[in-house]
């Protein structure tokens, strides 16, 4: 993959004042090497990354809920097993990402508090309901599919721990996308009611999935900086375009339509044109007024609060064990 970032070889950084550390940092970025946790980095870089990685982690965790709703009702035992494994994978992704964020100096408990108090955001797609079984398929195909488009370039992110976490995550996300597509494929080739269920789900998730790449480039103030730092490698619109180009033939293979009358092949551009997205809705959902924002937060807060006594017990037990070990080793030393 070629680096499409136009500023790649010019000004990679931030400040006008150039300390030796800053120069070293700039050089690492310019050479496409990696910043590691113990390297010096500008505060703004640390802050931007912490924000991005933790929001990504929160999205994985909140993202367990819409599909988690269908574990108990999955229509076959095989589908149930696949779904349990998938939702569990998302918890694992959350864990790797929190660990990556922690290497930047903010502990997981603080990041978690930011989620629970509403200070930190998560991907707005998870504020939409999973109303039918087909939604599990649409989420896998479109939402995990969009996540892959976003995350594959992040494997080359300038920050080492984030890039490495993404390598692991991407492998699993492509399974998820495949499984989502298979669910829809079975439905689309099933009874008329099943096919309708699949089409309805795609109709509902298409727009929100395209919005997962964020606002249009002209309206995305942080993107430029993030590309200069080589955290992000492609713009929101570039990624969105790739995604559309990927899903159009996949939808055709499913025999389902995408709910966009403006969707057509543009010979000149060599890409599919697509219609305007409802950005007012996007902003409303992001700012808390989506169909499920309150429900998702309440679920997470309840789980956290109801688990407090368990975490306290585990901590108390670990302290007692440590005390015993210290005493034993003291005894040994004096023996």
């Amino acid at each position: 993959m070629a680096d499409s970032s136009p500023q790649a070889s010019t000004d990679p950084g931030t400040t006008a004042t150039s300390s030796p550390e800053q120069e070293q940092f700039d050089r690492i970025i310019e050479q496409d090497s990696r910043i590691e946790p113990r390297d010096w980095m500008p505060d703004a870089y640390r802050k931007a990354l912490t924000r991005q990685i933790s929001q990504h982690a929160h999205s994985e965790i909140i993202g367990m809920q819409p599909e988690g709703n269908w574990i108990s009702r999955a229509p076959s035992l095989k589908r149930k097993a696949i779904l349990i494994a998938k939702v569990q994978d998302e918890a694992g992704h959350g864990l790797y990402l929190y660990s990556a964020a922690e290497t930047l100096g903010t502990p997981r408990s603080v990041l978690n508090d930011q989620l629970l108090t509403g200070k930190a955001k998560y991907s707005s797609i998870f504020n939409y309901p999973a109303r039918s079984w087909a939604d599990v398929g649409a989420i896998g195909w479109l939402v995990d599919g969009a996540a892959i488009q976003n995350q594959v370039p992040l494997c080359r992110c300038s920050y080492g721990p984030y890039g490495r976490a993404m390598v692991r995550v991407c492998k699993e996300e492509s399974f998820h996308q495949r499984q989502g597509w298979e669910i829809l494929h079975s439905l689309a080739n099933g009874t008329p009611a099943q096919k309708q269920m699949a089409q309805d789900a795609v109709n509902r998730f298409y727009g929100p999935a395209l919005q997962m790449f964020g606002p249009p480039d002209g309206d995305s103030p942080n993107s430029q900086q993030s590309m200069q730092w080589k955290i992000k490698r492609f713009s929101n619109d570039e990624l969105r375009q790739r995604f559309v180009d990927m899903i159009v033939p996949q939808a055709e293979a499913l025999g389902l339509t995408l709910p966009d009358p403006d969707l057509r092949w543009n010979e000149e551009r060599g890409h599919y044109d697509y219609g305007d997205l409802d950005w007012d809705e996007f902003k409303a959902v992001l700012s808390g007024n989506g169909p499920c924002n309150a429900q998702r937060m309440a679920h997470r807060i309840r789980a956290h609060e109801e688990g407090a006594w368990v975490r306290e017990a585990a901590a108390a037990h670990a302290r007692k064990q440590a005390d015993v070990e210290t005493k034993e080793s003291t005894l040994l030393r004096h023996a």
């Binding site: 569990q88 679920h299 688990g307």
Partner: peptide, 11 residues
């Protein structure tokens, strides 16, 4: 799953 006391337990 999604309701456990900590993420490690969800898993």
């Amino acid at each position: 799953i999604s309701r456990a006391p900590e993420l490690e337990e969800d898993i």
